[in-house]
Amino acid sequence: TFYNFIMGFQNDNTPFGILAEHVSEDKAFPRLEERHQVIRAYVMSNYTDHQLIETTNRAISLYMANL
């Protein structure tokens, strides 16, 4: 899942690491979701930090390219 992918960046001092920290603390994050459209919609609806949203979009693109 995307959640498992992004958790691989925990403790990294990178934008993906920052995203992983936010996702791990977000109890409502769709952890079992595999459809990138649902993940993107969730982030757009629940996150207000523009940098975090952009990082999510980049992470989703990388995740999709590696499926």
Rank of each mutant, 00 (worst) to 15 (best):
T55N: 05
I18P: 03
F2C: 04
Q10Y: 14
F29M: 04
L32E: 14
I6Y: 05
N11R: 08
E34S: 15
R58E: 13
A65G: 10
R58P: 06
L62P: 00
Q10R: 15
A65C: 10
H50M: 13
F16I: 04
F29D: 02
N4Y: 10
L67F: 09
M64Y: 08
G17T: 04
M44A: 11
V23D: 03
V23T: 02
T56D: 02
A65P: 05
A20S: 06
T56H: 04
N4P: 01
F2T: 01
I60P: 00
N57E: 14
K27A: 12
A59I: 08
L62K: 07
I53G: 03
F9Q: 01
M64P: 01
D12E: 13
H22I: 14
I53L: 10
S61K: 13
Y63Q: 05
N66D: 10
S45A: 15
S45Q: 14
A20L: 04
S24K: 15
H36K: 04
E33S: 06
M44V: 10
T55S: 08
H50K: 12
I18V: 12
S24D: 07
I18Y: 10
Y63K: 01
Y47K: 01
M44G: 06
L62G: 03
M44T: 11
F5E: 00
T48E: 09
T55W: 09
L62S: 06
S61W: 09
Q10I: 15
V38R: 06
A59Y: 05
M64W: 08
E25P: 04
V23N: 02
F9W: 05
M7Q: 07
I18G: 06
T56V: 15
R40S: 09
A28F: 14
F5Y: 07
S24I: 09
D12Y: 10
R35Q: 10
Q51H: 12
F29N: 04
V43N: 00
Q37K: 08
F2R: 02
F2G: 00
G8C: 10
S24Q: 13
I39Y: 02
K27P: 14
Q37I: 07
H22M: 08
N46H: 13
G8W: 06
I53M: 07
I60G: 00
A28K: 11
F9M: 06
E34F: 15
M44L: 12
I53E: 04
T1H: 05
R35N: 15
